[in-house]
Simulated assay, not measured.
Amino acid sequence: MPFQIFGTPGAAALPWYEALERADGTRQLMAHHEPDAVHMAAGWARTGGRAGVLVAAPEEPERTGARHGAGIDGLLTGLRTAHMDAVPLVCVTGRTAPPGRDGTAVPAAALVRSARPVTKAAVRIEDPARVPRALRAAFRTARAGRPGPVLIDLPYGTAAQDVLLGPPDEQDRTRAEDGRPHRAPRRTRRFVVCGRGGPPGRQVPTAVGVRVALDASGHRDTTVVALAGADQLPHTVGALGTATRYGTPFVLAVFDPGGRGGGRAWELMRSYGCSGHRVDGRDSLRSALAWARKECVTTARPVLLLMAAQAPAQVRTAARTQTLAPREA
C-alpha cells in the first residue's frame, strides 16, 4: 500500500510538503482543517492496519481569526478522539512560520504541553540530526501496547533542513502483538463508518480516510457508507469539499426523523455537485443502497441517502456490512 499523508495548509509546514512532492511512493491529501485531517488519517490507519500520518501547521484562533474547531483547538480535539479510540497516528506539526515582511515570525504555540494529555507522547525536536530517530521512535510508540497518537513538533528552521531518512514504509514496518504482519481488510461489498461519541460529523472525514485506504489496497469494489444525523451536517462541510475535490466516492446516509434537516441536506449536496435519493419506506432501502453504490462510483463523489423512517441499525442490517466504529477502551 502506498504511503499516505494527510495534511492542512500552513506556511510552517511548507518544507515538509516540498519534500513530500519529491518523495516516491508517497501520496498527499489536503484537508480543510486540522480535525478533518486527524479523522481522515484515523480512518486510513484503522483500515490499512498501519499508523496514519498527518502534517499540520495549526495556529491559535485569536491570532488567525479561525473559526471554532480549527487551528490548535481542532487538532487537539482530533488527537483526543484518536487517543480514546486507540488509533495509531503520527502527527508532525510546524510551530513557526517563515519571517514576514517586517522580519518577525509568528510566535510558537505551546503545542507540546497541550498535546501531552491527549497523546501517547509529544516531543519538540530542535536539532535536525534528531529528526530521523524521532520519527522512527514515533511510529514504534504509536503502535506499541495500546495504540494511540504521537506528536512531533518542529520549528520551521528544523523542518527546512535536509536530513538522511529511509523510505517512509521502512519506518512503519510494525507487527501486531501476536507477531504477525497487519493485513489488508477482508473483501466485503460495503464498509460502514458510524460514530458513537466524539466530535459531531467526524464520520464523513473518517469515511474519506477509509475510502483512500481501501483504494490503495485494491478494494475498489467495496462501498463505504457513512452514517450521520441531519444535525451533524454543518460540521461536515469541509470534509465533503475535500471528498469532491479528490474524487472520493462514498455513500452518506443521513437520518432525519423529524424531517427538519432534509432541505439543508439537499442544498449542501447540490452545492458540491453531488446527487441524492430519499428513502421513504423500509422496503426501498436495499434498492436505494444499490443505486447509491453505483452512483458514487460513476460520479466519483459522495452520494446522499436521506432517510426519515429508518434507524442506523436498520441500515447496517440491510447493507450486510463490516462496521468501522470507535474501539472500546
Rank of each mutant, 00 (worst) to 15 (best):
A110M: 06
Q310Y: 01
G179A: 03
R196C: 10
Q232L: 10
R270D: 15
T96H: 06
D221I: 00
T119D: 08
D162Y: 02
Y17L: 15
A311I: 03
D172K: 02
S287T: 06
A115Y: 02
G241S: 01
D102P: 00
V53R: 06
A309I: 02
G261I: 00
G10Y: 11
F191S: 12
I125F: 14
R286E: 12
M40W: 01
T242I: 00
T174S: 12
G259E: 08
A51R: 03
V123K: 10
G197E: 07
P168A: 09
L227Y: 04
E177D: 08
P155H: 09
T81H: 11
D102F: 10
L306A: 13
P312N: 12
R282G: 14
I152D: 11
G166T: 01
T104N: 07
E62P: 01
K120G: 11
A176S: 07
F250H: 08
V224E: 07
S287K: 03
R116T: 04
G71D: 06
R175C: 10
P168I: 02
E295W: 08
R130Q: 15
M40A: 13
P9F: 14
T236F: 03
T174Y: 09
A129R: 09
P132N: 12
I72Q: 11
V112Q: 05
E34P: 14
V92Y: 10
A319R: 00
K294A: 15
G263Q: 02
Q171M: 14
D85E: 12
V112K: 04
A308M: 08
G198D: 12
R316W: 04
G197D: 03
V38T: 05
A12Q: 05
G74M: 04
R133Y: 13
G157R: 14
V163D: 03
A57Q: 02
E18V: 11
G103V: 03
G49P: 11
A239P: 03
A19H: 05
V131P: 15
T223A: 15
L252D: 01
A142T: 01
T299G: 10
D85H: 07
L240K: 00
W44G: 14
A31R: 04
R146M: 12
A239Y: 01
P107H: 11
M30S: 08
V212E: 14
G229N: 00
G69N: 06
A144F: 04
D280G: 13
W266E: 09
H182D: 05
K294I: 09
P249F: 06
A144H: 06
L233N: 09
V150G: 11
P98Q: 08
L306R: 09
T158Y: 14
D215I: 00
D85M: 02
V87N: 06
